[in-house]
């Protein structure tokens, strides 16, 4: 699996979080191609969740897509596709066309981290109140009131 990916996309970095958990680090430019390849060729058709991470020391934001598979024999395999972008202008392409289920997960990541998903159908607030006008709450420089 890892070999297949690196053969197709020489620029990606793969490492194993553990057995059967493969993390693929790529850039915002290639993430969609990697996603399409993972879905159609490698059989990762079932989106599990999408997470953002704020690496404030490196001034970067990370988006990680966790995808599983319903293909027999690789249900236990989780592929994590990650991309990193600069913190000041976080724009990444949306993966809704690849996995339709990513829509609400991306919407959540947008409101929690302020990451813009280009081409996303609707990025209004899902969990936060409509009138939220502070920093996105899961950014590290947002300090919770009461703390």
């Amino acid at each position: 699996m890892a070999a297949q990916l690196t053969a197709k996309f020489p620029e990606v970095k793969v490492d194993w979080m553990k057995e059967r958990r493969l993390k693929v680090s790529t850039s915002a430019m290639h993430v969609k191609e990697v996603g399409l390849f993972a879905r159609s060729t490698l059989g990762f058709d079932h989106i599990s969740t999408v997470s953002g991470v704020d690496w404030i020391a490196k001034n970067e934001l990370e988006v990680v897509y966790f995808v599983g598979s319903t293909t027999p024999g690789q249900e236990d395999f989780i592929l994590a596709i990650s991309e990193r972008i600069a913190r000041d202008n976080p724009v990444v392409p949306t993966m809704v066309e690849v996995w339709k289920g990513a829509e609400y997960h991306e919407r959540e990541t947008h409101e929690m981290f302020g990451i813009n998903f280009q081409g996303h159908p609707d990025q209004s607030h899902l969990f936060l109140p409509e009138d939220w006008n502070e920093l996105p709450p899961l950014r590290k420089d947002y300090v919770s009131p009461g703390r």
């Binding site: 058709d45 079932h46 599990s48 319903t70 249900e75 236990d76 996995w99 339709k100 289920g101 990513a102």
Partner: peptide, 22 residues
């Protein structure tokens, strides 16, 4: 599968996902 349903919803639609087994 496409919308990422899990649990009873997926199993009622014929997708055999169950982390306990997988």
């Amino acid at each position: 599968i496409a919308y990422g349903a899990t649990g009873t919803v997926a199993r009622a639609s014929g997708v055999s996902v169950d982390v306990r087994k997988d």
